[in-house]
Structure formats: C-alpha cells, structure tokens
C-alpha cells in the first residue's frame, strides 16, 4: 500500500511539473545559437576558426 502511495505521489508531482511549465506563444524563431556544452563549443570553434563568447550569468 505504501509503495502504491509513493508511486501515485511521484506521478502526481511529475504531472504537476509538466503542467507548470508554461507554453510560450510567439517564441522567437531566430536568435543567438548557443552551444550545448563547452566541449562542443571548443570543437566547433576550432573547425570554424572563430572565437568563443562565454556569457556568465545568474538569476536576479
């Protein structure tokens, strides 16, 4: 019974998480291409012979 309760609770939380995520209308269709990782960025920078722009930020 406890196990079932735990599973239901996890599913409910997961469901709430998905519902909480907003759908953003008018999301920009163009923008700055951001790399998926630093390693990918280094590899791509070498192949393209361009520099890397690292933007370090924090939430307000």
């Amino acid at each position: 019974m406890k196990r079932l309760t735990a599973v239901v609770a996890i599913l409910a939380i997961a469901g709430l998480g998905a519902q909480d995520r907003k759908f953003k209308k008018n999301y920009a269709q163009d923008g700055v291409y951001w790399a998926a990782s630093w390693e990918d960025a280094l590899k791509e920078a070498k192949e393209r012979n361009v520099g890397i722009h690292l933007a370090v930020h924090k939430d307000n």
């Binding site: 995520r21 790399a35 960025a41 933007a55 939430d59």
Partner: peptide, 18 residues
C-alpha cells in the same frame, strides 16, 4: 562566434514552437 551561456539556474524552461 561560438556562443556559450553559463547560467546555473534552470528556472526559464518553457514549451514553444520552433
């Protein structure tokens, strides 16, 4: 340039059409 955003918080996630 190759652009890298370094921002630890994950509070901006949305669903969108791209």
């Amino acid at each position: 340039w190759v652009n890298v955003a370094a921002h630890s918080e994950k509070t901006h996630q949305v669903d969108a059409i791209v």
